[in-house]
Computed example of a mutant assay.
Amino acid sequence: MLVDLFDFALPPERIALRPAAPRDTARMLVVTPDALADRIVRDLPSQLRRGDLLVFNDTRVIPAQLEGTRGDARIGATLHKREGPRRWRAFVRNARRLRDGDLIDFGAGVAAAARDRADDGSWALEFAGDEPVELLLERAGRMPLPPYIAGKRATDARDADDYQTMFANEPGAVAAPTAALHFTPDLLAALAAAGVDHATLTLHVGAGTFLPVKADDTADHRMHAEWGRIDAATAERLNTVRAAGGRVIAVGTTSLRLIESAAGDDGVIRPFEGDTAIFITPGYRFRGIDGLMTNFHLPRSTLFMLVSALMGLERMQAAYAHAITRDYRFYSYGDASLLLP
């Protein structure tokens, strides 16, 4: 399909620079095949059914953005995928100043050698020393806010909490699974009282999620791989819910992509551990999920293509037009949508 089909005009002022407070007071647009309803996230228990199951991504964002020097050149790096105990693939700013083997000094006693430049322009960074890389990043790194936020304001201390979900447990993401940012303990308790349970899986979100689609046709776009895991107990639980007539509702496109990667043509979700580069566009047949809660996405993005695959392109263009007209807040710190096909 032509990428132009997934374009829409978004006023810059609709981009949220801070999350709603409290988190569950964010607005929520409920989208079904025949209706649009303006709600808030706290209304979620009334929008779901007893026996439904919400699936959250428990990845934890690491301080994956680094600023350093190589000689007199300033080098910026955003880690996006772990390749080994001390080796991360990274998108690098000012990469033309690097050669294989160059040592980048990130300050605070943190340095890494640049290795193996890939066709997409990324470099592998091999961190020096014996300390765990996680400790090095805590010293020298900062929270990797999306470019559409970081380009409008500086990262600050609030983001260390604001950009982590309440489920964050498994370190390794360089972007938050932002749909889950709306959840609070009180909301989870209200959902449980309504008979809606939850489960978790892990997908370490990479910086590739922010890369623009440069191809003219979706068939020519290639996704960056991300590592994920669904254990056997969670897979069995999801299958049991569906067999009993409940719905599996993914919270976030990351949860959805991993469930769909683990689901077979028979609709059975199986344990999964490894990389996924699944790219979902209209025409895709969903096998493992029955709905999605997600934020509002960039024009021409793979994520807007995904929600259009779930609900239909015309339906999502109408939903986004409604959201823009009604002053919904967009992107990572913005409002939510609940998509029920």
Rank of each mutant, 00 (worst) to 15 (best):
V3D: 02
F8G: 12
L10Y: 13
R14S: 15
A20R: 11
A20Q: 14
R23A: 12
V30P: 05
V31Y: 06
L36S: 07
L44G: 04
V55G: 05
R60Q: 15
G68Q: 01
T69W: 08
I75N: 05
G76P: 13
L79V: 00
H80G: 01
R89K: 14
V92G: 11
R96Q: 15
R96L: 12
G101A: 09
D102L: 04
G107F: 02
G109M: 02
V110H: 00
A114V: 03
R115V: 04
D120A: 09
W123A: 04
A128W: 02
L135K: 13
L136F: 09
L136D: 14
Y148H: 11
I149H: 10
K152V: 03
T155S: 10
A160F: 11
A168K: 00
G172L: 00
A175E: 03
A179N: 00
P185A: 08
L191Q: 03
V196P: 05
G206V: 04
A207E: 10
G228V: 05
R237D: 11
V251R: 00
T253N: 08
S255W: 01
I259C: 09
G267H: 02
V268H: 11
I269W: 00
R270W: 04
F272M: 03
E273P: 01
I280M: 04
P282M: 04
T294V: 08
T302Q: 08
F304W: 07
F304L: 08
F304Q: 02
L306C: 11
S308D: 13
Y320L: 07
A323H: 07
F330W: 03
Y331L: 13
